[in-house]
């Protein structure tokens, strides 16, 4: 007796199991993607975007028009910020980048610029500044390890104002969350 020679039906059954599993895993991936890219519409000051759903919508401060962060994230909550800054004619994105950089250097701990360059983001010219800083709870009684946060600013010049789109994420999550941020950038209209 030999049970090693599997029948044709047996082989088909084996393949269908794999096929069903692959289909399920692909559907699971779609499920993951749809949850992670779930968006809500944002509109303020003539600027629209799709921002991640399920994130905390913080009160915009100063020239911010959007400040949203993923509060359920362990460590530093991934944050998107949109700032709208009025400008005079002829001001360049690089100038705004320098201004933002100085402001950040003053307000953030261990702030360092990693890279700055001119880029094209979904067809728009922008100035990109990548940087890191350390986020620690200002409460001295809060016994916790500070987070290393990586940030990137995209500065767009649009007529009489500049728009700065900012992405902050814990260093370890930065790359993983970048795709989501690019979706946000893609949805941005102004």
């Amino acid at each position: 007796m030999s049970t090693r020679n599997s029948s044709l039906g047996d082989r088909f059954a084996e393949i269908t199991v794999i096929a069903v599993t692959v289909v399920a895993l692909l559907a699971g991936w779609a499920c993951k993607t749809s949850v992670e890219t779930r968006s809500i519409a944002f509109e303020a000051d003539g600027i629209t975007a799709q921002t991640p759903a399920g994130w905390l919508q913080a009160e915009p401060a100063g020239d911010e028009i959007l400040h949203t962060n993923d509060f359920s994230n362990a460590g530093f909550g991934t944050t998107y910020i949109l700032r709208k800054m009025p400008l005079a004619e002829g001001t360049t994105a690089a100038q705004i980048a320098s201004l933002l950089t100085l402001e950040r250097a003053q307000n953030l701990t261990a702030f360092r610029v990693l890279e700055q360059r001119e880029v094209t983001v979904y067809g728009r010219t922008a100035y990109e500044v990548t940087y890191v800083f350390v986020e620690s709870n200002p409460d001295l009684t809060h016994a916790d390890i500070p987070s290393v946060v990586r940030g990137v600013d995209y500065i767009f010049i649009n007529g009489d104002h500049a728009l700065a789109a900012t992405y902050w994420a814990e260093e370890n999550d930065f790359e993983m969350g970048l795709g989501r941020f690019h979706l946000f950038l893609e949805s941005l209209t102004f």
Partner: peptide
């Protein structure tokens, strides 16, 4: 439920 079935369930059971 969906993720539990499609991802965790199928990976483990397969």
């Amino acid at each position: 439920i969906l993720g539990g079935i499609l991802v965790v369930g199928f990976v483990q059971e397969f």
